[in-house]
Design a protein around this nucleic acid. Sequence first.
DNA 1: AGACTTTTTGCACCCGTGAGCAAATTTTCT
DNA 2: AGAAAATTTGCTCACGGGTGCAAAAAGTCT
Lengths: 341, 341
Amino acid sequence: MTEIERTAPAGSNITADDVAAEAGVSRWTVNRAFKKDASISAKSREKVMRAAERLGYVPDLRAASLASDRSHLVALLVDDFANPHKLVMLETLTRVLRRAGWDTLLVNTLDKEDAGSALINASQRRVDAVILIGIQFDDEVLKTAAHARRFRKLIIFARTSQSPDTISIAVDDVKAMQDIAGYVAKRGYRRPMFLAGPRTSSAHLKRKETFMAFWQERFGTVPDCASVAAYDPQLAAEVVTAELGGRGRSELPDILVCENDALAIGAMDVIRHRLGWRIPGDIAVIGFDDIPPAGGLNYQLSSYRQPVAEMAEYLVEVLESREDRDFTRLFEGGIVPRDSA
Amino acid sequence: MTEIERTAPAGSNITADDVAAEAGVSRWTVNRAFKKDASISAKSREKVMRAAERLGYVPDLRAASLASDRSHLVALLVDDFANPHKLVMLETLTRVLRRAGWDTLLVNTLDKEDAGSALINASQRRVDAVILIGIQFDDEVLKTAAHARRFRKLIIFARTSQSPDTISIAVDDVKAMQDIAGYVAKRGYRRPMFLAGPRTSSAHLKRKETFMAFWQERFGTVPDCASVAAYDPQLAAEVVTAELGGRGRSELPDILVCENDALAIGAMDVIRHRLGWRIPGDIAVIGFDDIPPAGGLNYQLSSYRQPVAEMAEYLVEVLESREDRDFTRLFEGGIVPRDSA
DNA sequence: AGACTTTTTGCACCCGTGAGCAAATTTTCT
DNA sequence: AGAAAATTTGCTCACGGGTGCAAAAAGTCT
């Protein structure tokens, strides 16, 4: 190796020491140059940055994280990839987090048993926080999490949980579902059927309960109800076929209130193409989440939009705050009326 | 702090030293216990694991990565969240990678200008490889990548690139499109129109060119062609409206060959609901990727399925191999015929 | 049992950076 | 100019674990 070698040979390891030598300062000055709000003169920073540029140096975040005990890294645990809404959430979260200087580890929680090992996975990378956006995180899993916990914050996003040591950032499901129920009633529907998703003990959506309670109180009747094992349009299609197939028009509910759009879309497909009814003529449909296809020409699905971006911004605030007590922060969205109901 | 403190107080930092003390061995024996294929007796491993369990110890992968220069971490750069196929790819990749012991950093490349800084981002985490699954990575970006490169491998997934130092893992677009063109011809369609996605200089899909060439050679005519600025159903809808709106039935192409399903689905929506034609009666549609809704009741879209899981398995092989020359590995999928064409 | 081979264990040194303090330098004020 | 205050810089020690070798322990053979 000659001394002339200046430009970074691809793959080599330029460290702060190399830059320090090049710039004629100490290693610590180099590190300070890369740190915002560090105590360093504009002149030396400039000098360092120039040298770093020449050598192709970027600080090693592993070492930084090791030394400072802050990784600026979060783990996103996801298990529910059949729901198109997940793509929206992933996009929003990664965008907002990255803008704020946070990196995201995407962990696919393969199945329920796997949730625990996914948490250990995250622990080993020493993430600052774990964010759960999935459905199969029950109390048991969360308890495991609390045990082997090597991260400061456990955040449930877009869902609320009663578990201790857990932060929830979600839409106010009760308020939202009351809005929907009110909308359904006001539009004159009187024989609703509720299409629910899977039930988990923790991190529960209170949508079904709220709707049922509302309806019973208002009209004294208990609506029909069906449940789907996952937020998957195809599964929803099967359930709706089983429920509504063979019914005459008069036996049909007048509206299908769905726990979210993934279910609603599967239901709409069945209603139109397998059962041959028209929407909203024969039966109306309303969903939740306002996923992209809901606004498309084909579905024109009335839905409820969560302020996902706003929730993500708040998530960043939570990550950046020092305190780590548990709490729940609720947001409010709004109904997006379209043709389907 | 008393000496009685045994169980890990949540958030504290148990290190290999602590476990070593607890198990009555040296720190290195502890680390060996956690390393597969390490030179350690079954007895001491057992002893160590028991102690680790008691204290709630898990090895720190930051430190491991720092010391060994292997992070077992990859960065996934994604920019194209409007395409539902991305969700499938994300699911498959994260699942397969995790099974093989690799963690995934999901980086949302906000826009074209941002691609460079996304790469630096990944570099700072010292990932072992960067995987690109997006559309806006042009030669310039890739050149930047090659420059500031702190990772061993740059892999373009589900797309091919001519860039040097770049590994491509993709479906054989030429072969695939020839299959599709053959299928279209055999089904008797004679006035196709091609709906293409955005063009990028590098990492190009050769689908359009292949289809055009095939058709010209076979029938001597050059099919109509339209182009959409992103793989987004909504954008596709606009383009198709502009192209086909106002045409009479006889002026219509008899089939719309789409570069992928995201475009096809947007096109189908317009054709049915805005233009009022029937599929495949008035105009047929064929896509690419076989995204979930393609198989749903509503679309029943004929498409081409890529062996994504198989490609992901191969990706793992590439990650695990030592050599880092550039090459391209092509896979073969197959047409999934449905009602739309 | 003694000599030799194989397995297991311990150790020095290194990976690249941060926190916090003391020394050096610059700026400000009288 | 000289002293005090403010800013900048360098340094020690620490973060947690991997590499490769040497010492120790265990197993094998005659």
